[in-house]
Design a protein around this nucleic acid. Structure first.
Length: 560
DNA sequence: GCCGTTTTCGGCCCGACTGTTTTCAGTCG
């Protein structure tokens, strides 16, 4: 049966077709049904028991569609829509600043064969002549197609993981396939993924290519290439690297990349007269061993200096792991914009194996998130104190806004009552570089311990980082009572690995956090761990790997 | 197509923003 994420993607695709047909409300219904399928628990069971209509937004008609998609991977209406509407319309609608309506207008006016044709029309200045379009829009479309040409489609790591899991499960359905591993940028935990990749053990390439082609979201497959490449309707690619079992190690390395990492390995192999393509290596460890290298964790294979560092003696065995993390850091509750109570968050943290949790709701200045003033903060502290036998140690904290003047939104008399302060920019993101740098340095130098929250304020693919002289701020932090958060919210992943490496080089400490706004959100800490590993952080670089008592002492604003 | 009732049809999500307009259409979150 198809994965829920796959069914959801097909419903979204149907939604887009209905919108193209002008049936706005049906499109909305399918979009809502798609979200519902995504959020559903135990979709397969609901299908089996004919209970899909229990899901919100799913009535008799969509229930039939979902059931058929889940069971067979397709449905006639989707196939009909795919042959009626050429790929280029879908691709146009997916471009930033171009929606379904503009895509439809462009298609009706020009009947373009592909994005290339639209690009050409931009160059000729023809797009701007269309009613509703202008010079600016034309330039944006041109730039978007240009970007698409160089980088392909791009999705968040989190979404790429879901898609990869679905494709991997599908490939495992081919009888001649012995093993399927998710590889590529997903395995390397790159924030933005532009191609899915898989390492497969099998001896029947044709059968594997055919299996890939039958994945519900894939529209075409290049079968003769190495790797086999499948194309999704939205421009995403799936690369499938096939290898024999005794040489799977090298296949796995090739599929994982990065390109620069692989090239470096090839060069080292050539220097040692090792033939990687025929090397006996059932696993990756043996590939690296053959080159006198320790196992290089996937997150580090970015092609910078990970090989050089390994030859210089770093065996990467002490990189921080999820198991090292002792405290659920940076958590919101119903006091501000979270969905669960303090007690529920503490319970969920305990169930995930944490020893402690930091409750850090927004401060008063974050009024849009119902930030807490001193009165409500003390109410929360009283509630925490009243909890009988809490399942984990609870640190009373705040995520305080960094105000424009470089002060932190915590009344001075409250600092002594707090166990931890996270200081974050939530307003006036667009301050100029000099002002923002000054503002942050002032905050970091404040004479009590604080943790810089979601440092550069980016939203991956949606909002650029703040403009700031990062080196100056890091220099200030290095000599101040301050640490830096690596925020595991899949949309933030902030501070990013490149800058985190710079911070680590200055001896700055980190916390790995989830920025959870619900019990479910606590799991996002694994992304923080992944970013930390990419930054080559060790357990000793991360404060919330300490036992709860030591952690509490380390982050207390005023010290012991 | 779904949903909720004013019970079998009529409304469905909305505000900020941007670019294209000259009062609005379309995108995005």
């Amino acid at each position: 049966m198809s994965e829920p994420a796959t069914v959801a993607a097909q419903l979204r695709e149907l939604s887009l077709y209905y919108e193209l047909e002008g049936d706005k409300h049906r499109a909305f219904a399918y979009d809502r049904a798609s979200k519902s399928v995504m959020a559903a628990q135990g979709l397969h069971r609901l299908v089996d028991e004919n209970r899909l209509e229990e899901l919100p937004g799913i009535g008799p008609s969509i229930a039939r569609v979902v059931s058929e998609l889940a069971r067979t991977g397709s449905v006639p209406v989707l196939e009909a829509m795919r042959s009626k509407w050429p790929t280029v319309v879908v691709e146009l609608a997916a471009l930033p600043k171009v929606g379904v309506l503009k895509a439809r207008k462009l298609f009706d006016a020009f009947k373009p064969a592909n994005l290339e044709a639209i690009s050409l029309l931009c160059e000729e200045g023809q797009i701007r002549e269309l009613p509703g379009f202008g010079k600016t829009t034309e330039q944006k479309i041109y730039a978007a197609i240009e970007k698409r040409r160089t980088t392909g489609a791009q999705v968040l790591l989190e979404d790429a993981e879901d898609a990869s899991a679905a494709v991997a499960a599908h490939l495992r359905g081919e009888p001649s396939v012995k093993r399927v591993e998710v590889a590529g940028a997903v395995r390397r935990a790159v924030e933005v993924v532009d191609a899915l990749a898989f390492a497969v053990v099998g001896d029947d390439r044709a059968a594997i290519a055919a299996r890939l082609a039958s994945f519900p979201l894939i529209t075409s497959v290049e079968r003769e290439t190495m790797p086999i490449v499948g194309h999704f309707a939205d421009g995403m690619r799936a690369e499938v690297w096939v290898g024999a079992p005794l040489r799977f190690g090298w296949t796995h390395v090739l599929a994982t990349g990065s390109r620069a990492h692989v090239e470096t390995l090839r060069a080292e192999a050539a220097a040692r007269a090792v033939d990687l393509d025929t090397l006996y290596a059932p696993d990756e460890q043996r590939v690296y061993r053959a080159l006198d290298l320790p196992f290089v964790p996937p997150e580090l294979r970015d092609g910078t200096d990970e090989i050089t560092a390994a030859y210089a003696g770093d065996d990467y065995s002490d990189l921080v792991t999820l198991e090292d993390v002792t405290a659920a850091f940076h958590c919101h509750t119903t006091y501000s914009d979270g969905r669960n109570s303090v007690a529920q968050m503490a319970q969920a943290a305990a169930e995930l194996g944490f020893q402690a949790i930091t409750i850090t709701d927004h401060s008063a200045a974050a009024s849009y998130a119902s930030g807490l003033d001193a009165v409500r903060l003390r109410e929360q502290h009283a509630e925490i104190a009243a909890l009988e036998d809490p399942p984990v140690r609870i640190l009373r904290g705040t995520e305080a806004d960094i105000l424009v003047d470089g002060s932190i939104d915590v009344p001075p008399e409250l600092i002594d009552e707090l166990d931890v302060i996270i200081a974050s920019v939530h307003q006036r993101y667009k301050a100029d570089e000099a002002a923002m740098t000054e503002r942050l340095i002032t905050v970091m130098r404040a004479p009590y311990f604080k943790i810089w929250g979601h440092a550069l304020g980016r939203y991956v693919m949606r909002r650029d980082p703040i403009a700031v002289r990062i080196d100056d701020v890091l220099d200030a932090i290095a000599e101040s009572p301050a640490a830096i958060e690596i925020n595991g919210d899949p949309h933030r992943l902030d501070l990013d690995p490149v800058n985190a490496r710079k911070a680590k080089a200055r001896g700055i400490k980190f916390v790995l956090s989830s920025d959870a706004h619900s019990t479910k959100g606590l799991g996002a800490v694994r992304y923080a761990v992944a970013m930390a590993r990419r930054a080559r952080l060790r357990k000793r670089d991360v404060l919330n790997t300490l036992p709860a008592d030591e952690l509490a002492a380390a982050v207390r604003p005023r010290g012991p």
